[in-house]
């Protein structure tokens, strides 16, 4: 660390961090408490607590349908992303390093394309059955949208291990390409694959724009149900928000956990050389 740190934080540091924490945490805590409050508009603290909001939310037939749709969409996107990106990144690292700049540009593109623009472009091109307004088209859009997350996680992990040496060692022992990929490379880049998958999963699960604009009411997702309830019933909307927040927290913590382990494995690999 280059700037020296004192043993105690200064007053201005404490003020900045406190304000930051209040801003970041109050909306989340308020949502959690609101979702279990009976009435909370006359007093500082709620007048009572109840789980009725959650019971009402689960009674809605759309609750399970949208949850299922969102899970199918998220797992589907992760699967397509894995099948498409992981072999490609491996191939680029091993065989066609010249293609890396091309891949880098392709991975920046999604950052420059707003969700609404991608949705408009896809809806206008794929305006014929069976692709039009279909979950398949939506999955493709989600894969494009989340491509950089998978690419960066896997690519960083691949950079940290010595692929040519591992591949040559496996080849000299008589392994074929598929064997090398499944038995040697994948176990070594598992942390990158896992954190990429978790990032894709969390993003797709929370994604609203593409889902609403590409498919709409025909394939209602969990965030779409939530937006619907923000206009109908506050307590239920709060319950659904809590579920979204909680999933986001869990996935973030899992990524941190996997990432920490990933660091360790790649260090171990370097040490092993």
């Amino acid at each position: 660390m280059d700037i020296s740190r004192k043993s105690k934080p200064t007053a201005s540091q404490i003020i900045f961090i406190t304000l930051f924490l209040l801003y970041m945490i109050i909306p989340i805590i308020a949502t959690y408490v609101f979702s279990i409050a009976t009435r909370w508009d006359r007093s500082i603290l709620p007048e009572g607590y109840t789980l009725q909001g959650y019971r009402d939310a689960m009674k809605n037939p759309y609750f399970l349908i949208t949850l299922k749709n969102s899970l199918v969409l998220s797992f589907g996107s992760v699967l397509v992303s894995l099948l498409l990106i992981v072999p490609t990144v491996y191939w680029v690292h091993l065989k066609v390093r010249l293609a890396k700049p091309l891949l880098d540009i392709l991975m920046i593109l999604p950052f420059g394309i707003p969700g609404v623009v991608l949705a408009l472009a896809l809806v206008q091109v794929y305006n014929f059955a069976p692709l039009n307004r279909s979950p398949v088209l939506l999955t493709s859009a989600m894969v494009v949208f989340t491509m950089p997350f998978m690419y960066r996680s896997v690519s960083n992990n691949l950079e940290a291990i010595d692929i040519p040496t591992l591949t040559e060692a496996a080849q000299s022992l008589g392994a074929n390409t598929i064997d090398i990929l499944v038995k040697v490379i994948i176990p070594n880049i598992l942390p990158g694959i896992l954190s990429g998958s978790l990032l894709v999963f969390a993003t797709v699960f929370a994604e609203f724009t593409l889902a609403r604009l590409i498919v709409g009411a025909g394939f209602k997702t969990f965030p779409m149900l939530l937006v619907e309830y923000t206009r109908k019933d506050g307590t239920i909307a709060a319950g659904l928000s809590v579920i979204s927040f909680t999933i986001a927290w869990i996935v973030s913590l899992l990524i941190l956990w996997v990432g920490g382990k990933g660091m360790k494995t790649s260090q171990d690999v370097i040490k092993a050389h």
């Binding site: 909306p27 308020a30 965030p223 939530l226 506050g234 928000s241």
Partner: peptide, 15 residues
């Protein structure tokens, strides 16, 4: 920074 979209918007409506 990933808390965007509908849940965040609704959290702000609550407060």
């Amino acid at each position: 920074t990933n808390f965007a979209g509908a849940p965040l918007a609704f959290a702000f409506i609550i407060i």
